[in-house]
Every structure is written in structure tokens, then in C-alpha cells.
């Protein structure tokens, strides 16, 4: 009897725990709607959530919303793959080779300190205003977090494990695949997560450079005509896209770093029991 009760309690608290992160957003949106209904805020400056959603549905029916979203997603993904990929390769090469590290690292560190958005005028003059300019800007933004994390991840793999691998006659490839890469993976995935964040912020800016499509364009276009509903809609879409890419990244971490999750679960368990 008692057992069942505690069990139920446990399930209840689990549900509560799962819904806890949503509490504040839901509350904020509800508050916002109420504030609009009671005319606490000027509708022309901040439209109500329901207005924003109906506007979204309207744009969706016209096909505008999903087209602009897919174009933005394309630019973001292409930029991430190019920049992130390049950052990974550079980080990897510099992580394993002393010579290239000496050759490149300080230069890269120097370039890293230039805010990539400051390069917009140069990129426009070099690459114009087409897709390549936007994608390059996103790529540039994603390159450095990936580089730093890959480089740092690879150079900080436990040297004792590497020595073990070498003394057990692992080939260069196996040493990388079985020891160095998995050891660096947690840091690399952190880089991926960080790059995803940079990707969206860069894209917003990139799409304000004479775009004729994309969420950033929708937003700047709406801004010209003080179309608040669309502006707020775009902001919400960015929040949603940012959140879902972070969700994916986090789950990738969980999947690829299962071994760490087990470790954590163990220590958590012992901590919890120590509490009581």
C-alpha cells in the first residue's frame, strides 16, 4: 500500500520535473495575452500572441512562411556544414600536428578576435549579396567555435590513454578512431552546440543584407512597415528554431556520450542516497 503511494508520488514529482522548464514561458505568454486583452500595452507596439499566431497561419496558407523558413534553414545548414566542417578539419589538423599548429594557430587565434559581423562590408564587396555571401557569413561564424573546441578537445585527450594506445600498437587510424576522437568528442559536441547558436544569430544579420527571402528578410521587411505581428512572429520563429537545434544538439550529446551519462547517473545516485 505504502509502496504504491510512494511510487505514485514519484511519478507525480517526475511529471512536475518534466513540466517545470515550461512553466515560465507558458506563464509569460499567458500574461502577455492578458495584458493585450486588457489593453495594458499598445497593440500597435506589441500585438497579442493570438494575433501573432493567426498572422503566422495566414502567412503559412500563403506559403510565404514555410518558404522563407526553408530558405533560412538551408542557409543556416549550409553555413554550419561548411564553417563547422572547416573548423573541425583545421582543429583536427592543428590538434594532431605540431608543425601546422605552430604555423596556423596564432593566426587563427588572431582572426578569431575579429567579430565576424564586422566583416559584412568586405564579404559584400567580395562575394556580392547572393546566397554565397550569406552562407559565408554563417560559415565564418560557425568556424571558430568548432575550431577552438575541436582543437582543445583533441589536445586535451588524456595523454596516458594515448600512450596506452601507442604501446598497444594501435595504427594511426585506430588510435584516432578509438582513442583520440571519442576522447575529444564531448568538447567537440560542445562546439557544435555553440556553433548552432552562432549560426542563428549570424543568419539574422546575414539575411538583412539585401535578402529577398528568409526569416530575416520577413522581419526587416515587416519592420519597414511597422508590421509588428510579423516582427514578433519572426522573433518567435527564431526562438523556436534556436530551441529545436539546441534540443537536437543536446540529444546528440546524450546519444554519442552515453558512457558519460551512465557515469553521471551513478554519481547522481550516490549523491541522492547520501542526502537521506
Amino acid at each position: 500500500m505504502e509502496n504504491i503511494e510512494t511510487n505514485e508520488n514519484y511519478h507525480f514529482s517526475l511529471k512536475l520535473k518534466n513540466s517545470l522548464p515550461w512553466l515560465i514561458p507558458v506563464f509569460l505568454i499567458a500574461f502577455w495575452q492578458v495584458a493585450c486583452n486588457l489593453s495594458w500595452v499598445n497593440e500597435t507596439l506589441l500585438p497579442s500572441p493570438i494575433d501573432v499566431v493567426t498572422n503566422g497561419i495566414k502567412l503559412f496558407k500563403k506559403g510565404e512562411l514555410q518558404e522563407n523558413m526553408s530558405i533560412s534553414l538551408y542557409r543556416a545548414t549550409a553555413g554550419l556544414l561548411i564553417g563547422g566542417g572547416l573548423g573541425f578539419v583545421l582543429g583536427f589538423i592543428n590538434g594532431v600536428s605540431h608543425t601546422t599548429r605552430l604555423l596556423f594557430d596564432s593566426t587563427i587565434q588572431m582572426l578569431r578576435n575579429i567579430p565576424h559581423l564586422a566583416l559584412i562590408p568586405l564579404i559584400i564587396l567580395w562575394l556580392g549579396i547572393g546566397e554565397s555571401a550569406k552562407i559565408s557569413l554563417v560559415a565564418l561564424g560557425c568556424l571558430f567555435p568548432m575550431y577552438i573546441n575541436t582543437y582543445h578537445g583533441i589536445t586535451s585527450v588524456d595523454p596516458k590513454l594515448i600512450e596506452m594506445g601507442k604501446s598497444y600498437e594501435l595504427s594511426k587510424k585506430d588510435l584516432f578512431v578509438k582513442v583520440i576522437f571519442p576522447g575529444a568528442l564531448p568538447t567537440i559536441l560542445m562546439g557544435v552546440r555553440y556553433a548552432l547558436g552562432v549560426m542563428w544569430t549570424t543568419l539574422i544579420v546575414a539575411e538583412t543584407i539585401s535578402a529577398s527571402s528568409g526569416i530575416g528578410y520577413m522581419s526587416t521587411n515587416a519592420e519597414q512597415f511597422m508590421d509588428m505581428k510579423t516582427i514578433v512572429l519572426c522573433i518567435l520563429i527564431y526562438a523556436l528554431l534556436g530551441k529545436s537545434s539546441d534540443f537536437i544538439a543536446k540529444n546528440l550529446e546524450d546519444i554519442f556520450l552515453e558512457w558519460r551519462a551512465i557515469e553521471r547517473r551513478d554519481t547522481n545516485g550516490s549523491e541522492a542516497s547520501g542526502d537521506k
Binding site: 518558404e67 523558413m69 526553408s70 530558405i71 533560412s72 534553414l73 538551408y74 542557409r75 543556416a76 545548414t77 549550409a78 546566397e131 527571402s213 529545436s244 537536437i248 540529444n251 546528440l252 546519444i255
Partner: peptide
Amino acid sequence: FIVVLLLFWCGVAVYGWHLT
């Protein structure tokens, strides 16, 4: 679920590429 989500992501991105 994550795999499906990633595939969906890629699909949408490819569609966006076609649009551009």
C-alpha cells in the same frame, strides 16, 4: 526521433536550396 528530426531538417534545407 532524433534521426527523424534530422532527416526532416535536411529535407527542409534541401527544399530551401531548391527555392533559392
